[in-house]
């Protein structure tokens, strides 16, 4: 346990140092839907932190990035590997002012969802949500000093 704590501490320290140098603050949160009954007796879903998940449930990842420097950042690209046991939810990736690309080859190449193909049993077919290994958001414009961007996607636990 002591060793694990040290590793975590070192990891946090390294991340903090990197962000200080990088002048961009990047945070990821994982949430899931929870069904609640409101005061009017109606069922509604709300997002709560996803600490545990069971197969079939979806997780909603939100990546928030803020330019904490005093100059614009350009060529901002966010890449998120889709964890093993998770399957991308078709159409769920979103980011205002961003082009959304995917990879089906472990993050080597990226293209729009409709342009990707996979070869299965010697036959080429269009890629499906289950084939995606990475999601990528490419900002079309600069991220001004002090500005914030948000990228989202959802995946279902297999």
């Amino acid at each position: 346990m002591k060793i694990l704590m040290s590793v975590i501490f070192l990891g946090l320290a390294a991340a903090a140092a990197a962000q200080e140098r990088a002048h961009l603050d990047v945070q990821t949160t994982a949430q899931k839907e929870e069904l609640v009954v409101n005061d009017a007796g109606e069922s509604e879903t709300r997002l709560v932190p996803a600490e545990i998940l069971v197969p079939g449930e979806s997780v909603f990842y939100t990546i928030t990035f803020t330019n904490v420097s005093d100059q614009p950042a350009d060529n901002v690209v966010i890449t998120n590997k889709i964890a093993e046991n998770l399957m991308y939810v078709d159409g769920s990736a979103f980011g205002a002012g961003m082009d959304i690309l995917f990879s089906v080859d472990g993050g080597v190449t990226f293209a729009a969802a409709g342009e990707l193909t996979v070869t299965e049993d010697g036959e080429v077919r269009s890629a499906e949500a289950g084939d995606f290994t990475h999601v990528r958001w490419v900002m079309r414009n600069d991220l001004d000093a002090g500005a914030r961007g948000i990228a989202r996607f959802a995946a279902v636990l297999e």
Binding site: A22, H23, L24, V26, T28, A30, Y61, I63, F65, S69, Q71, A73, D74, N75, V76, V77, I78, T79, N80, K81, A83, L143, A151
Partner: peptide
């Protein structure tokens, strides 16, 4: 899950 961000400053 970890996101990676690249950019030019």
């Amino acid at each position: 899950n970890t996101a990676v961000v690249s950019f030019d400053l």
